[in-house]
Every structure is written in structure tokens, then in C-alpha cells.
Simulated scan of single mutants.
Amino acid sequence: MTDDDLTYPGGLPALLDRYEGRRDPFNFGPESLPPLDCDLTALTSAIVPQSKSEKHSDDARTSWAWKRRDIAREFIGNSELAYLNGLLISNLRKRDFPEHAPALFRRIWKEEADHLIGALNLRWLVSSVQTFADHGDTPTQREVGHALRMLFGMMKLYEFERTFSGKAPDDAFGFGRRVKARLPLDMESFSLKSGGLDINLIAPTWEQAQGDPVIGPLACHLLEELNREQGGVFRRLRIMRERRERQMARK
């Protein structure tokens, strides 16, 4: 097989080159992250000012100075703790980071989960739970983080591609135009009547998350939000099941 036949020419080595190319650590210069024992309660009540997003004459010319200003733009008017969570995530995606960053990330979620769940939008909540995949302190934290990183990542790819169909996320497909074609990797077709793949993807991870006091509140909140979401593949499958059931009842 030639590279022309591959979705990703060059295979794994090429993928790793691109992956690693985005993981260069920040140059902090004279700056640093807050210490591990910083006062989290104070950070929950402190508000991020506009000035944190602006460049000042005494700012160091480092990649970190640029990044922290960029992140600050999203958190103006929000709490300093929510902002700190964003700063930690941006570091923990890199190959290297301040030594205490993983422990500080876990500490803020252990001690201030309620505040963060209320302060962060869903995009940052998803980024937070995905960060546990690599930096969780327990097998459960890492396993739940990995599972939700894959689940939400594949949802993002699929839902983005589906927008080109001309249908909104809450607009389920009808039955009349289905193409009976080979599924990738010769997978068996999904059964609307009896298929349980969607439940198999969600239920074990949800149950596992409930047993961990650090990732549990965050993961369960996101899965509850997924359950309430009016659009997306899982809600559309429910709609299609109900339509199919009504069709069969009329026969």
C-alpha cells in the first residue's frame, strides 16, 4: 500500500511528528504558575481584570506571556480560579511543564469542583475532564479521562462533518434515503431496535466516574449535560428509535 492509499500518509511516524510538534513546552522566563499551596478560596472570589489580557511594557517576551494573555481574554470577568484552570490545562498539554502543575490541577478539582463547574463553560469543562487522561492521580481518573477524551473527541469530529449534510445537530435523518454500504473496518451495522452500542459507550464510564471524588463531579456533570443535550448523535438515535417504533406499531 502506498501513501496515496492512506488517510494519513507516512503512518504513525508522520502522525507523531505532527502531534509532538504541538507539544513544545512554554518558555516561562521570570514568570511562574501559582504555588501548589496557593489560596484557592481567595482565587474563587477574585475576578480576572481586562488588564490581564493586555500587553504591558514590563512583560517578558516569552511564549508563556503571550499564551497567558490569550487565555485571559476568555476569562475577563470570571474568577481567577477558572482562569488558573485554563492556564494549567494549556501547560499539561505540553511535553514538559512546571513540576507541580499536575498536582495543582488535581487539587483545584478536588477542593473547588462546585465552583469550577459553575464558572466554566462546557468547552472548558470538556478540556478539563480530558486532561485527567494523562494527569489523573488514580487509575479511575485516568481511565475515565481517556474514555471521555475519546468519546467527546469523536463526537466533535462526527458532528462537525455532519454539518455539511445540511442538517442541524437536532435534526434526525429519515429512513427513506439510507445507503446500505459497507461500514469501515467491516463493522456490523447498528440496530435501532436492539442495538446497545450507545449505552455501552456511556454507562460503564458514568458508573466508574461516580466512585472517584476528584473526577467524579466533573465527569458526571458532563454526562448529565450530554443526556440533556437536544442535539447530537445520541439524541438523534433516540428520535430515530421512537419513529421506528411508531412505524412498526402502525403495521
Rank of each mutant, 00 (worst) to 15 (best):
D4L: 13
D4C: 10
D5W: 11
D5K: 13
D5P: 01
L6H: 01
T7D: 01
Y8L: 08
P9A: 04
P9I: 14
P9R: 07
P9K: 04
G10F: 05
G10N: 04
G10V: 09
G10L: 04
G11P: 01
G11I: 11
G11V: 12
L12W: 12
L12Y: 09
P13H: 04
P13V: 05
A14M: 11
A14G: 04
L15K: 04
L16M: 09
L16V: 15
L16T: 05
D17A: 14
D17H: 10
R18C: 08
R18T: 06
Y19S: 13
Y19H: 08
E20G: 04
E20Q: 13
E20F: 15
E20I: 10
E20K: 15
G21S: 12
G21Y: 07
G21Q: 09
R22G: 00
R22C: 02
R22M: 13
R23S: 10
R23H: 04
R23P: 02
D24M: 14
D24T: 15
D24L: 13
D24N: 06
D24Q: 15
P25T: 07
F26V: 05
F26S: 00
F26D: 02
N27D: 14
F28S: 05
P30V: 12
P30H: 08
P30D: 08
P30G: 06
P30L: 11
P30C: 08
E31P: 00
E31W: 12
S32K: 10
L33K: 00
L33I: 04
L33M: 03
L33A: 01
L33Y: 01
L33S: 07
P34C: 02
P34K: 07
P35L: 07
P35C: 02
P35Q: 02
L36M: 11
L36I: 12
L36W: 10
L36H: 06
L36C: 03
L36Q: 10
D37P: 00
D37V: 04
D37I: 07
C38S: 02
C38Q: 04
D39T: 09
D39E: 01
D39M: 01
D39I: 06
D39N: 09
L40N: 08
L40C: 09
L40P: 01
T41C: 05
T41N: 14
T41D: 14
A42N: 01
A42I: 01
L43G: 00
L43F: 02
T44D: 03
T44M: 10
S45M: 15
S45H: 09
S45I: 15
A46R: 12
I47F: 08
I47W: 09
I47T: 15
I47E: 04
I47C: 12
I47K: 12
V48K: 06
V48Q: 00
V48Y: 01
Q50K: 14
Q50R: 15
Q50L: 09
S51T: 15
S51Y: 06
S51G: 07
S51C: 01
S51V: 13
K52T: 10
K52R: 14
K52D: 14
K52M: 11
K52G: 00
S53E: 11
S53Y: 05
E54T: 13
K55T: 10
K55W: 04
K55G: 03
H56K: 13
H56N: 02
S57D: 08
S57L: 10
D58F: 12
D58A: 13
